[in-house]
């Protein structure tokens, strides 16, 4: 099953709307869209995951790759619209400490 991906360019940032299940089969599709976006110096990228009900570890890997690429290109990436299952995954893996999620600093014990 394919992901439903849509890109929108706002004035100072771009949004990537993603829908579907991000797993080993669909992850390459997300990578193809997301990675080039992080390569534009200084860009701000918001990834809206409202339409995503499941992410597996391969999917998480895409976000990590994107984060590393953003760092080396001085762009920023932020995630929003995570459902509770997806949020839990980012929290368990500790990735919520390295990726901006909903732009709020988490106060959980480190």
């Amino acid at each position: 099953m394919d992901l439903d991906i849509r890109k929108e360019n706002k004035k100072d940032f771009s949004i990537l709307y993603v829908g579907g299940e991000i797993d080993a089969y669909t992850a390459p599709q997300l990578k193809e869209e997301l990675l080039p976006m992080t390569e534009n110096e200084g860009d701000k990228i918001l990834v809206d995951l409202k339409g995503v009900d499941y992410i597996d570890s391969t999917g998480l890997g895409i976000f990590i790759g994107a984060l590393k690429s953003a760092k080396s290109h001085n762009s920023t990436i932020e995630l929003t619209g995570l459902n509770s299952r997806v949020k839990r995954l980012f929290s368990i893996t500790g990735l919520d400490e390295v990726i901006n999620i909903d732009n709020e600093k988490r106060e959980e014990a480190k």
């Binding site: 990578k31 570890s57 890997g61 895409i62 990590i64 790759g65 590393k68 893996t93």
Partner: peptide, 8 residues
């Protein structure tokens, strides 16, 4: 490891 690999 490659940039999108990780281990828990």
């Amino acid at each position: 490891v490659a940039s999108n690999m990780f281990i828990t």
